[in-house]
Write a protein that binds this DNA or RNA. Sequence first.
DNA 1: TAGGCCATCTGGTCCT
DNA 2: AGGACCAGATGGCCTA
Length: 198
Amino acid sequence: MDSVFSDTDTSCDLFPHTDDEDSRGSVRDASPQPEQQQLQQKKRRRGRGRSDSTAQVVKKNRRLKANDRERNRMHNLNDALDALRGVLPAFPDETKLTKIETLRFAHNYIWALSETIRIADLQAGKTGDPPLLLSPSLLVEAPSPGSDGCSWSSSGSSSSSSPAYCASSPGSPSAPEDYSFLQQVPVFGFRSFAPGIY
DNA sequence: TAGGCCATCTGGTCCT
DNA sequence: AGGACCAGATGGCCTA
């Protein structure tokens, strides 16, 4: 269906990144632990010279290929992250969400949408009226945060459970006023999220 | 200049 | 055996 969800795609047709694109990274010398490398080189010198050098060439080629795959894999991951950013509400200043912010924002966003549906269903069941899906007043019924702003988390496995790791989310609601974003959520067109609420 | 974020490299582990 | 996945290390860039 959607290319975004082709998680097992390893052919990377969608993301034909090459080493040329990564010239910035490849310029860097790849010597994480010079001392360890020197040790390893000493060990290698003791071994048989010629066959080792060819083995090292093979090993190096394998490493280069693995590096390339890893690079592509991370590019795939980043592209998926970009796709996720694309379906999340945009901030007014168009600042790009960081990776962790994107994930946490998406988590909270999904939760908010779920709550919207749940509350709408509840109201529809009470009154028999058709659900007021678009009424902002429904969104005001956000979970009331505790003193730490996170007591509403993990209240069970019900659909009303909220983002579980809000305490560790820099952008997650930490104070009651942070929930004002729920009042700003027009069910169509989530464009008015305030910064810092994800 | 310190700290955050990021891309890349690398070696280890697991899976096919 | 080779590829995917993962986590740690490293260095560059940017911003407060």
